[in-house]
Structures are given as structure tokens and as C-alpha cells.
């Protein structure tokens, strides 16, 4: 039992124990999440979507979509969208209602949070919308830092 005198040996035992428990729990919750996602697929949710083409803003409040839909799916329901898929990154929206990206003006998307507008962190086809969420497409000058928030 001399190895027990080494504090690293004891730390290893405790770490192994916690790693196995934590991994088991993460596997369990991942499967629970996947199961839940499967169960709620097909349930109708409502999303508020705003589109500003640099001049006017149009709101599509209470847009009904199936749960599991992405922001791109919602946008395509209310507008004419052109996009390009970049492998590993997702979809880059090239134009909405014939208003095309033209440097330095690009379509950027924002989400409304209790802390104000937050710039979309991922590509629109990878962002799964939630019920009652408010999202916004803003055609804006991307060379300005920080980016101007939606009006």
C-alpha cells in the first residue's frame, strides 16, 4: 500500500471516479436530450422575425413553424432567400428579397435577449429557433465595429 503515500495516486483515484461518473451522466443527458428532441419534432411553435433591408423593416410576428426548424427555414417561409452552403460552417445568406450582399453591406442576423440584441453566433441554417423567440435580419455595413444593432 506504499503507493497510497503518494498524493497523486489518491488524486488519480478520485479523478478516475469523477471522470467515469461525469462521462456516464453526460451520455445519459445527451440521449435524454436526443429523445426529447425526437418527441417534440412536429410540434408547432411561433417565432417573430424582422427583416430590415437597410431602408424599411418588415415584421412577421407569430410565424408558425415546426419545432426543430432553423432560422433559415423560417426566413424562407416569409421571404425569397438565396444562400450558399460552406461545408463545416453552414449557410451564408447571399440575398433576401433580391437585396444582395455587396461589400461592405451584408445580411447579418440578430437575436433579441433580455440583455438586448445579440449578434447571431452561428450560421442561420444551424440555429434552431425556439417558441416565442424574436430574430432579426439586418442588412448593414459590416465594416463598422462594433456592428450597429437593429433599429
Amino acid at each position: 500500500m506504499s503507493f497510497l503515500k503518494n498524493k497523486w495516486a489518491i488524486a488519480t483515484l478520485v479523478l478516475t471516479f469523477s471522470t467515469i461518473i461525469a462521462s456516464s451522466m453526460s451520455i445519459y443527458y445527451y440521449y435524454q436530450y436526443s429523445e426529447l428532441l425526437k418527441k417534440i419534432q412536429g410540434v408547432t411553435i411561433h417565432v417573430n422575425l424582422g427583416i430590415n433591408d437597410g431602408k424599411t423593416t418588415k415584421w412577421f410576428n407569430g410565424t408558425a413553424v415546426k419545432s426543430g426548424s432553423s432560422l433559415l427555414d423560417v426566413t424562407m417561409l416569409v421571404a425569397n432567400v438565396n444562400y450558399t452552403i460552406y461545408p463545416g460552417m453552414g449557410a451564408l445568406v447571399e440575398s433576401i428579397n433580391e437585396v444582395k450582399n455587396a461589400h461592405p453591406y451584408y445580411w447579418m442576423w440578430w437575436m433579441s435577449t433580455p440583455y438586448g440584441w445579440i449578434e447571431g453566433p452561428i450560421a442561420a441554417d444551424r440555429y434552431i429557433v425556439g417558441d416565442g423567440e424574436t430574430l432579426f435580419w439586418y442588412y448593414e455595413n459590416s465594416s463598422i465595429s462594433p456592428l450597429p444593432t437593429p433599429p
Binding site: M1, L4, K5, A9, I10, L13, V14, T16, F17, I20
Partner: peptide, 22 residues
Amino acid sequence: SNIFIEDSNKFGKSILLGFIGF
């Protein structure tokens, strides 16, 4: 083993026993 015979390093032994139980 002599884990219960020697009276030293009880903390380490307790952790080891817990790990064996686990």
C-alpha cells in the same frame, strides 16, 4: 494486502476502499 493491519495513512486507504467499492 495489509490495508487494515497497518494503522497509517487512513485517508488514502479510505479513498482506495471507496474506489474499490465503486
